[in-house]
Simulated scan of single mutants.
Amino acid sequence: MRPGTAWVSRTELRTDRLILRRWQERDLEPWAAVNADPEVREHLGEPLTRDQSDASVARFRDGFDLRGYGWWAVEERDTGDFVGSAGLDRVEDGLPFGGTEIGWRLARPAWGRGYATEAALAVLAYGFDTLALPEILAVATVTNIRSQAVMRRIGMTRDPEGDFDDPRAPEGPLRPNVLYRIADGAADRD
C-alpha cells in the first residue's frame, strides 16, 4: 500500500485520525463558520454567506451523486468534530488547463496539526488507486504558502509553466496562481 492509502468504502475514506465522508445536515453550520472566517478565506476571496456556504454543500453532494467522488466532509475520528473538507473535482471551465484537482479547506482550530496533509494523502490514494487517474493537479494563489507546503509534502511538484492569472479573481493578490502536479506512481517515492 502506498503512503496515505486509506481504508475506503463507497463514499468514505478513513485515515489514522480522520474520516472523510459524505456531507450531512449537521455539517452545514460548522462549514458555514469555516467559510465565514476571513482568515480561512484569505486566499479564496470574500467570506461566504450562510446561503452561499449551504449552496456549496449542495454542489458537493451533486458531484458525488454524478461522479461518485468529490469533496468530502472531514471529521476527527476520535471526537467526531467537523474540521473541514478535502476532495477531488474537475478543473473549472475557463482555466488554461484541464484535469482533476485536489483541494482542502480546514477550520482554523485544525490548522497546524497535519490534517490537511493526512486528508490530501488519502484523497490522492483514492484518486490514483480507485479512480485510476493518471495525474492530479492543485492550484493556490502565489501568496498561499501554507497550501503550497501541503502540496510539496504530498509529493506534488510545481509546474512554473502552468502558473496563471485566475480570470475569475479580481485584480489583486488572488489573481496570480501557481500550478502543482503529481502523476500516478509519483507518491510511491516515500
Rank of each mutant, 00 (worst) to 15 (best):
D129P: 02
D78N: 13
E76T: 15
F128D: 05
W111H: 03
E76C: 08
T49K: 13
G185D: 10
V139L: 01
W104N: 01
D65Y: 03
G80T: 04
R108H: 03
G114D: 13
D81M: 04
T157W: 00
M156G: 15
D78F: 06
D163N: 13
V142P: 04
G155K: 08
E92Q: 12
R175M: 05
I154L: 08
S56I: 07
G114W: 09
Y69W: 15
L121H: 06
L121M: 14
D129K: 08
V83T: 12
D65K: 11
D81H: 05
P96K: 08
D62S: 10
L66P: 00
A186T: 08
L88R: 01
D129N: 09
W72L: 08
G99H: 01
F128I: 10
E75Y: 08
G112H: 09
E135S: 06
D166L: 06
Q52S: 00
G70L: 09
D166E: 08
T117V: 12
R77F: 09
E135P: 04
W104H: 09
A86R: 02
E118F: 04
L133Q: 12
V142Y: 04
R158F: 09
G112V: 14
Y69P: 04
V150R: 08
G80R: 01
R67P: 10
T143K: 11
S147K: 01
D93S: 10
F128N: 06
R168C: 02
A149F: 14
L131Y: 12
P160M: 03
I154Q: 04
T130E: 06
A149Y: 14
V74C: 15
R153M: 07
N144V: 14
D184Q: 12
S85D: 06
L121Y: 01
A73H: 01
D184W: 12
D166N: 13
R152G: 12
L48D: 00
R153T: 04
T130I: 07
P109M: 13
D89P: 00
Q148G: 14
A132M: 10
Y69L: 04
L106W: 00
A132D: 13
T49G: 00
P176Y: 03
R105C: 01
A140T: 03
E75G: 05
A138I: 06
L131N: 14
